[in-house]
Design a protein around this nucleic acid. Structure first.
Lengths: 219, 219
DNA sequence: TAGATTGTTAATCGATTAACAATC
DNA sequence: TAGATTGTTAATCGATTAACAATC
């Protein structure tokens, strides 16, 4: 049989999406979420392409691997495409995150809709500065990072830790988080974090993105 | 002639890098910059791979297209690799950026090393809130966004505008920036910005990255 | 010398794109 | 019907990877 197995369309390996498809679908989801807020009801692959810089054929190809979500001559229904992609990414549910660092960056994150829009809920905020303890950030009181970390992670079902702490504080904190059972660390500090292989670290890099954008401006 | 033209190694199209190579080189640069701060003098392709999640062969391949930067059995000299990559990306110089929004996010950005480390200098900070006018953020006084925007952009040689403003304020501001001649807009708001084709918009998307990380955790 | 790591090849796989029939 | 846009094919191109000789 040369033909493609019905269970493994392009962009998937067995049951899992390829890295590229998962990344692009996440991207589409971001634009769709924003488009929905702006009151858009349908969107064409060309419009999605303009916003994501992904080729429109690629977008149609990515989506058609999972079903016929669009309407010819019209485009895709924003609401229904959002829920389809959430299903594909298996991120339809709520996920709880803990925020570390109640400085400017931490407060900006806590007050942003950006995580909430994608089903992430901040359930605890920590800081080591005694002056900040008990202060209210968003809907939460700032707690001290301490021995009860593991317990809070278990009780609140925290999967993701977001680090908005000074660079020097990041590695020791990451060690504590790993010990407490956190599986995904979202690192906004500049530290290069060392973690065991079962833990995923994502280091946010706005300057890197900027460098990249600048290259294509300069050439 | 089947062989590869000497002037166009893999990863380049004529004189320009492919998107993928430019993105990866920017990524290496980020890790190298951090590694340098941590006192590392040499780094192997395997270590770079651990931090960037890019395959180590891919890294060696990306670098060897531009010269023999490494030492067998030893690795790459961090300092020299940083300057080589900067040369390749043509971002050795200083670039001036203007920051819009003096809220928590704006202050976090202004006080971060992350742009400075890569040769980006914040030369002006703007906010529309009269209460914030004249306040000092980082080394700059907050200015009002107003008619003299074009003049400041010209005088200060501003190439990049970083938007840390509320979603509703983003599009009108983007329009003003385009009119003032800014070519790259770095958007931290959730707005979908409409700009002419010669202007590049990069929308920062931490939640999207998180969604993506979560997918691979859940499966 | 022994160990480590680069630079490079060759093979494979996924991404990208143009084009267009299908159809809303 | 006419216009728009999807879904899909086919061809090409770049990314990825394993493997290993070269060499520090």
């Amino acid at each position: 049989m040369i033909e493609n197995d019905a269970e493994t369309p392009f962009g998937k390996v067995g049951d899992k999406l390829t890295l590229g498809v998962a990344a692009r679908l996440s991207r589409y989801l971001q634009v769709l979420t924003q488009a929905k807020k702006m009151g858009k009801e349908t969107i064409s692959s060309q419009e999605l392409s303009d916003y994501t810089h992904v080729n429109s054929t690629q977008i149609r190809r990515d989506l058609s691997g999972f079903g016929k979500f669009g309407k010819r001559g019209v485009g895709y229904n924003v609401d229904s495409l959002v829920s389809q992609i959430r299903k594909i990414l298996r991120t339809s549910g709520q996920h709880n995150i803990a925020l570390f660092g109640a400085g400017h960056l931490g407060r900006a994150i806590a007050s942003s809709d950006i995580f909430a829009d994608h089903g992430f809920r901040v359930v605890a905020i920590f800081d080591n500065d005694p002056q900040k303890l008990g202060e209210t950030v968003g809907a939460h009181q700032v707690r001290q990072i301490g021995g009860e970390l593991r317990q809070i992670v278990d009780e609140e079902d925290i999967v993701v830790a977001v680090l908005a702490v000074p660079t020097a504080a990041a590695q020791p904190l990451a060690d504590e988080l790993v010990a407490a059972g956190v599986k995904i660390i979202f690192n906004y500090s500049e530290a290069l974090l060392q973690v065991p292989p079962e833990v995923t670290v994502h280091t946010s890099s706005p300057a890197v993105d900027l460098l990249y954008a600048l290259y294509f401006y300069l050439t």
